[in-house]
Amino acid sequence: MTETAAPARSQTQGVGEPLVKLEDVHKWFGNLHVLKGVDLTMHQRDVVVVVGPSGGGKSTLLRCVSMLEEPTTGRVYFEDRDITDVRANLNEVRTHIGIVFQAYNLFPHMTALRNVTLALDKVLGLSNDEAHDRAMDQLARVGMGHKVNAYPGQLSGGQQQRVAIARALAMQPTMMLFDEVTSALDPELVGEVLEVMIRLAGDGMTMMVVTHEMGFAREVGSRMLFLDEGRIAEEGEPREMFYHPQTDRLRQFLAKVL
């Protein structure tokens, strides 16, 4: 794990323009205040891992980055564009931000291959051949080249999740968001998905990863956010945070999960 992750970590922070910037993001669900003013900057090749107790707003934060949740107040910038502006073309923005979900969310009525080619065809307007080739490349990259004609219902959770990753990668996104992608998997299937993510980080993909896999967070993350009760309670270099937590909340959290 450590070896593969090393390149991703070595070139971090502050390279060029920020890719993503959140300014004082608040999110209310009815009267529930889920995000209470989050500021965040991500650069190319950053692998930001987000950890914290459940209900702390981790998934909401991640979903705000691609505007699947609209912040109640605050701004989200992607490549210098304010995507919280009502005039922003979110459909176009989302083609640059791949998301992988906890529940895979593959389209059950389509084969693995069609899951990947659908958006290439309908959104990017690629020709059938181009879409097919690109999809086959990505499916092979996640080790699913042998099951391209299977329907999601015929695949294991780990296999479905790898197809979901291929589906997102095929759009050739600028960054990838991973929302607790291994939480729904049987323990013996977690490894195959993490392996794909580690390789992706090694290839220099910009990633935000909400996860309960503390080993992954420590080894692969270039930066870690500890989100607690809607605020970033602590952030920094993952190992540093694991070995020298600064706040009581993080100490308590680590004591529980490690």
Binding site: S66, L68, N91, E92, R94, T95, I97, G98, I99, F101, A103, N105, L106, F107, L118, A119, K122, V123, L124, A164, R167, A168, M171
Partner: peptide, 11 residues
């Protein structure tokens, strides 16, 4: 999740 997955692909 189905519509979210579709929208997240830019549809």
């Amino acid at each position: 999740g189905q519509i979210e997955a579709a929208r997240s692909l830019g549809m």
